[in-house]
């Protein structure tokens, strides 16, 4: 509607002092990326311990440490993104339970506590207890990775971020990052079957995430003019077109192809390349999707 009348009205904004710049910058990209790895490796370890217990029995401690490190990176960047970081404790004292941020803070804190316990249990080689705690940690990893999608959905101003598409993207990002990181972490210790499983998870996560992005890219514009205006930033000569496609190729298209090639050629190196590309590309994809709705003037 608005777009159609532009030619007739020739309306041009000649004075407006809208909020300048990007409100949620690259710090939030790192936040989402690190969280995907931190939760993803836990989910994947849980699956691998049930499907290939012998192959991954020595990965309990390294995986718990990796998850611990990346969840701390996630929390650190969350804190760094606050304009009043020393008031973070307000969330625990004055929580508003209608806010996804409050829920996310509580769940991420509990998740971190469980990770500390996992590291301790793995270090003490209490595998039976570790596996029991891992079950609850893996269950908690799901809402921890999903809360950012809920937060994005609560951003009424950003029409592009819709539920349930964002939920699907967050869980797929965790599976993609988790499987990719486990391929690199496990290395030659993994059996061929375990590598096969990780390759399948990586390839299918990439495929499904790519399909959702392409669906948004093609059909999103047909639903709402605000989405159409945002998608224009990644179409044609849009300022984020190159970065968007770079991300899609590195995070999804190339890893999918490399997973297929590695299966055909039984090549570990190609599988590792797919994993590295997926991890790098995921950060680019997340960044583009975070920034483009913020380019649209709200007034």
């Amino acid at each position: 509607m608005a777009h159609e009348i532009l030619a007739a009205t020739n309306a041009v904004v000649t004075l407006d002092v809208a909020i300048p710049g990007i409100v949620w910058p690259w710090l939030v990209t790192v936040n989402m990326w690190a969280k995907s790895i931190g939760t993803g490796v836990i989910l994947i370890l849980f699956v691998l311990l049930r499907m290939h217990p012998e192959s991954v029995k020595n990965l309990r401690l390294p995986t718990a440490i990796v998850a611990f490190i990346f969840i701390n990176i996630f929390l650190l960047f969350t804190l760094a993104d606050l304009h009043q970081p020393f008031r973070m404790w307000h969330i625990f004292v004055y929580p508003s339970f209608s806010s996804a941020i409050a829920w996310g803070s509580f769940m991420a804190s509990a998740f971190l506590g469980l990770l500390v316990l996992l590291v301790f249990l793995a270090y003490k080689k209490k595998n039976e207890t570790f596996d029991k705690v891992l079950l609850w940690t893996a269950i908690l990893a799901i809402p921890v990775t999903l809360y950012t999608a809920a937060l994005m959905a609560q951003c009424t101003a950003r029409e592009l971020w819709q539920m349930p598409a964002e939920s699907a993207q967050m869980i797929l990002a965790a599976l993609l990052a988790g499987s990719a990181f486990m391929i690199l972490l496990g290395g030659n210790k993994l059996s061929a079957e375990a590598k096969n499983t990780l390759g399948v998870v990586l390839g299918l996560s990439a495929l499904m995430a790519f399909i959702i992005y392409m669906s948004e890219y093609i059909f999103g514009s047909m639903k709402a003019e605000e989405i159409a205006a945002v998608i224009d930033y990644i179409k044609g000569d849009g300022p984020y077109t190159v970065m968007f496609w770079l991300g899609q190729w590195i995070a999804y298209i190339l890893p999918m192809l490399f997973v297929l090639l590695s299966r055909a050629g039984k090549s570990d190196s190609i599988l590792k390349m797919a994993a590295i590309l997926a991890l790098v590309g995921l950060a680019i994809v997340k960044h583009v999707w975070l920034i483009i709705p913020q380019l649209l003037p709200m007034s």
Binding site: A18, I19, V23, W24, D81, L82, H83, Q84, P85, R87, M88, H90, I91, Y94, S99, I101, L151, Q154, C155, T156, A157, R158, Q294, P297, M298, S299
Partner: peptide, 26 residues
Amino acid sequence: ERCIGCAGCVMACPYGAIYIDPQTQT
């Protein structure tokens, strides 16, 4: 005094009516 400066409100407001005060960082 309670605001932690997460800017969630800035992102949520469809009218662009909320800003981060550069002096108080809230």
